[in-house]
Design a protein around this nucleic acid. Structure first.
Lengths: 153, 153
DNA sequence: AATGAAAACTAATCAGC
DNA sequence: GCTGATTAGTTTTCATT
């Protein structure tokens, strides 16, 4: 992965629908070269996909919450992750160091929906305790930052 | 926003590079109709952008952390948010209910980079205290879930 | 709001370097 | 690994309904 690849990645992080021709003009390469490079980045698992970003409230998902999970002593972390995967309303799932073992970001239509999710989490095998924090406002999400100079993959 | 719009949004959340022609075949409309609808969704702020999703580790961002911020008594929330905006390594920023006022998701090259970020946060005017939690592993991030039937925008 | 047709542009493939 | 040429497909525009 060289500087041109990083430039392409950065451009696609900012505009995931940029055309290959456009990207080619940006980096000073032909369309096919850009296609080649991006195909390689996709195959290598550097670029993992393309998503439209959407205003959650407009979709009827007005409530966001962060939920920490404490596991029961016997619980297997991977088992729990597997069960969490079935809850579609969990948008992000991090296994973390500290008091709680998982932190989840969850979206629901309203607080009733959030309550249902928390109940289901509490009933999930291996989950001992949940700690929910309501998001009052999202200042930003998934912002694109600079890349370090010295990436090594 | 009707059922077709929701279908288009969902398709674009899953593949942000889907062509309008392809989307048209999916929903049973012509290319130009799809273009129209998507332009409207963008103009209305429902679709807010398109991003390539990238493997952070491949970019040299091997460390992810969640950082809670407690503010000093006098601090103005919006002022603090404004100052946080300058820290490019903050990918997500939520204003939350509870003990901490903000929760941040931060990416750094390594723990040294994280330390620098935490120091800068501690020195930020209005920030009284930080509470950092290292992410041991990301099970998933920005997963696309189902949409509620009854969206109203 | 949607359509079909035309023009402009883009993507994909491939031979050659 | 890049280029330029070719072909196929896509996007854009617009007159029409």
């Amino acid at each position: 992965m060289d500087a041109v690849d990083r430039q392409l990645i950065q451009a696609l992080r900012e505009n995931g629908r940029a055309s290959y021709a456009e990207l080619g003009r940006l980096v000073g390469l032909s369309g096919p070269s850009v296609t080649d490079r991006i195909n390689r980045l996709e195959a290598a698992g550097v670029i993992t996909g393309y998503r439209a970003t959407v205003d959650a409230a407009s979709l009827g998902l007005g409530v966001t919450a962060l939920i920490g999970l404490q596991l029961s002593d016997a619980a297997d972390h991977e088992d729990v992750a597997q069960r969490l995967r079935d809850l579609a309303e969990i948008e992000d799932c991090w296994f973390i160091a500290g008091d709680d073992s998982y932190m989840l970001k969850v979206r629901a239509s309203n607080v009733d929906g959030l309550e249902r999710t928390v109940r289901r989490l509490s009933l999930t095998k291996g989950v001992a305790r949940t700690r929910s924090t309501i998001v009052l406002s999202t200042k930003w999400e998934n912002r694109v930052g600079e890349l370090p100079e010295d990436a090594e993959a």
